[in-house]
């Protein structure tokens, strides 16, 4: 059994007077792919962003409860937010390369954390681009703006960029929803490869994708965590009425 990695206790997130996420408690196993599923608007993104305190960036957002990562409460007043975020790579719905070259996108993270040695940066860039299977495709144009490559390539570049700061956890918010099937497959392959070393939390509204990838699944509905458990059980023998209906495709 894998070590628990992220423990969420009684998490509530408010954007206004009513909570958008209410009383969520869940322990996420380490080195697995955890699928967060549920209909749109049910709080999946909010949940994901509360794991690296990105949710605080929304105007007026409030969080109560605890999120323990490696035993440390990331919402405690003494917690250092940049260190927490560095532990987790974030992959957004549409790939957002930084406004700089392919090379600089990957080197950005290490650079802001103080690495300036060109040789080491070269190594990191090559290693991370190979890790996501992008090296052969871009090695001759590392200096070009990252916006020039295809969207699918951009998403893998964003993954490499996140990996370059050596996170333990990868958070992905519907990472393939803007991609063509071929590019989606490549991202999924990356995830399956990466789960040996990383804990991956992926939000998806594509049930088939969740079935293909997930070791563990959590089902959200209307801001509540309805049910969670090992993926096989969740998809074959869900116990809650909402989960059954969602998995069968009755609600979506």
């Amino acid at each position: 059994m894998n070590q628990p990695h992220i423990c969420v206790e009684n998490l509530n997130v408010y954007y206004g007077p009513d909570p958008s996420l209410r009383d969520v408690s869940i322990t996420l196993p380490g080195r697995q792919i955890i699928a967060v599923i549920g209909p749109s608007g049910c709080g999946k993104t909010t949940f994901l962003k509360s794991l690296n305190r990105m949710v605080e960036l929304a105007e007026g957002a409030r969080v109560t409860g605890r999120v323990l990562v490696d035993g440390e409460d990331i919402y405690s007043p003494t917690a250092e937010v940049t260190a927490i975020r560095k532990k987790m790579g974030l992959l957004s719905q549409t790939p957002r390369p930084l406004p700089m070259s392919i090379y600089e996108n990957v080197a950005y993270g290490p650079r802001i954390h103080g690495l300036n040695d060109r040789r080491k940066l070269d190594e990191i860039v090559e290693f991370r681009l190979r890790q996501v299977g992008l090296w052969e495709e871009v090695k001759d144009r590392l200096g070009q703006p990252a916006s020039r490559i295809s969207i699918g390539q951009q998403q893998r570049l964003c993954l490499a960029r996140g990996l370059a700061v050596e996170p333990e956890i990868i958070l992905a918010d519907e990472p393939t929803s803007a991609l063509d099937p071929m590019s989606s497959r490549r991202i999924e392959e990356c995830f399956l490869e990466l789960k040996k070393d990383y804990t991956i939390v992926i939000v998806t509204h594509i049930l088939r994708q969740a079935r293909r990838l997930a070791d563990y699944a959590a089902f959200f509905y209307c801001g509540r965590l309805v049910e969670h458990g090992p993926a096989a059980r969740m998809f074959e023998n869900p116990t809650q009425r909402e989960t059954i209906e969602y998995v069968k495709g009755i609600i979506s």
Binding site: L57, L90, L98, P99
Partner: peptide, 20 residues
């Protein structure tokens, strides 16, 4: 999302503003 991309890598707000 571009700000978020930078912040999620552990950049501070000022680094994000300046560099991105």
């Amino acid at each position: 999302e571009i700000r978020e991309a930078s912040l999620s890598l552990g950049a501070t707000q000022w680094q994000t503003i300046k560099k991105v």
